[in-house]
Protein backbone atom coordinates (compact mmCIF):
# COMPACT_ATOMS: atom_id res chain seq x y z
CA UNK A 1 0.00 0.00 0.00
CA UNK A 2 1.20 3.43 -0.85
CA UNK A 3 1.31 5.75 2.10
CA UNK A 4 1.64 9.31 0.82
CA UNK A 5 2.52 12.03 3.29
CA UNK A 6 2.64 15.75 2.57
CA UNK A 7 4.53 18.06 4.87
CA UNK A 8 2.34 21.08 4.30
CA UNK A 9 4.69 23.41 6.18
CA UNK A 10 7.49 22.56 3.74
CA UNK A 11 5.26 23.15 0.74
CA UNK A 12 5.79 26.42 -1.11
CA UNK A 13 2.71 25.98 -3.25
CA UNK A 14 4.35 25.73 -6.67
CA UNK A 15 1.84 23.11 -7.80
CA UNK A 16 4.31 21.11 -9.91
CA UNK A 17 3.29 17.91 -8.12
CA UNK A 18 -0.40 18.34 -8.95
CA UNK A 19 0.51 18.54 -12.62
CA UNK A 20 2.53 15.33 -12.46
CA UNK A 21 -0.07 13.17 -10.79
CA UNK A 22 -1.94 11.25 -13.45
CA UNK A 23 -4.44 9.89 -10.95
CA UNK A 24 -5.84 13.14 -9.65
CA UNK A 25 -4.66 12.41 -6.11
CA UNK A 26 -3.41 15.90 -5.42
CA UNK A 27 -4.85 19.38 -5.40
CA UNK A 28 -3.85 22.76 -4.06
CA UNK A 29 -5.33 24.03 -0.84
CA UNK A 30 -7.68 26.97 -0.56
CA UNK A 31 -6.08 28.24 2.65
CA UNK A 32 -2.42 28.83 3.43
CA UNK A 33 0.20 27.26 5.67
CA UNK A 34 2.19 29.10 8.35
CA UNK A 35 4.53 30.52 5.70
CA UNK A 36 1.57 31.98 3.84
CA UNK A 37 1.72 29.54 0.92
CA UNK A 38 -1.10 27.51 -0.50
CA UNK A 39 -0.07 23.89 -0.28
CA UNK A 40 -0.53 20.55 -1.96
CA UNK A 41 -3.02 18.23 -0.35
CA UNK A 42 -4.71 14.91 -0.98
CA UNK A 43 -7.61 15.26 -3.35
CA UNK A 44 -10.24 13.25 -1.54
CA UNK A 45 -8.96 9.80 -0.61
CA UNK A 46 -5.41 8.42 -0.50
CA UNK A 47 -6.74 5.27 -2.13
CA UNK A 48 -6.19 6.69 -5.59
CA UNK A 49 -2.44 6.94 -4.98
CA UNK A 50 -0.51 4.18 -6.72
CA UNK A 51 2.78 5.15 -5.07
CA UNK A 52 4.43 5.92 -8.40
CA UNK A 53 6.34 8.79 -6.78
CA UNK A 54 6.21 11.19 -9.72
CA UNK A 55 5.01 13.91 -7.36
CA UNK A 56 8.03 13.26 -5.12
CA UNK A 57 10.34 13.39 -8.14
CA UNK A 58 8.97 16.80 -9.03
CA UNK A 59 8.73 18.42 -5.62
CA UNK A 60 11.56 20.99 -5.27
CA UNK A 61 11.09 21.04 -1.52
CA UNK A 62 11.01 17.33 -0.66
CA UNK A 63 7.66 17.97 0.97
CA UNK A 64 6.10 14.72 -0.22
CA UNK A 65 7.13 11.26 0.88
CA UNK A 66 5.70 7.90 -0.05
CA UNK A 67 6.21 4.64 1.73
CA UNK A 68 5.37 1.68 -0.48
CA UNK A 69 6.90 -1.12 1.54
CA UNK A 70 6.53 -2.17 5.09
CA UNK A 71 10.00 -3.56 5.32
CA UNK A 72 12.73 -1.04 5.06
CA UNK A 73 12.68 2.63 5.73
CA UNK A 74 16.42 2.58 6.40
CA UNK A 75 17.65 2.81 2.88
CA UNK A 76 20.45 5.01 4.10
CA UNK A 77 22.70 4.21 6.99
CA UNK A 78 22.90 6.86 9.63
Amino acid sequence: MADIQIDIERCKGCGLCVLQCGHGCLKMSEDTNESGNTYAMINGSKDKCTGCGLCCQMCPDVAISICNEKTNTKKNKS
Partner: peptide, 17 residues
Protein backbone atom coordinates in the same frame (compact mmCIF):
# COMPACT_ATOMS: atom_id res chain seq x y z
CA UNK B 1 10.04 4.45 -1.07
CA UNK B 2 10.30 8.14 -1.74
CA UNK B 3 11.72 9.99 1.21
CA UNK B 4 14.49 12.44 2.02
CA UNK B 5 17.91 10.96 1.44
CA UNK B 6 20.67 11.22 4.02
CA UNK B 7 22.95 13.63 2.15
CA UNK B 8 20.16 16.19 1.94
CA UNK B 9 19.90 18.24 5.12
CA UNK B 10 16.38 18.26 6.55
CA UNK B 11 15.58 21.96 6.28
CA UNK B 12 13.56 24.49 4.30
CA UNK B 13 15.51 25.91 1.37
CA UNK B 14 15.69 29.60 0.54
CA UNK B 15 14.65 28.87 -3.04
CA UNK B 16 11.53 30.39 -4.55
CA UNK B 17 8.42 28.25 -5.21
Amino acid sequence: NFCRTESLIDTVTHYCP
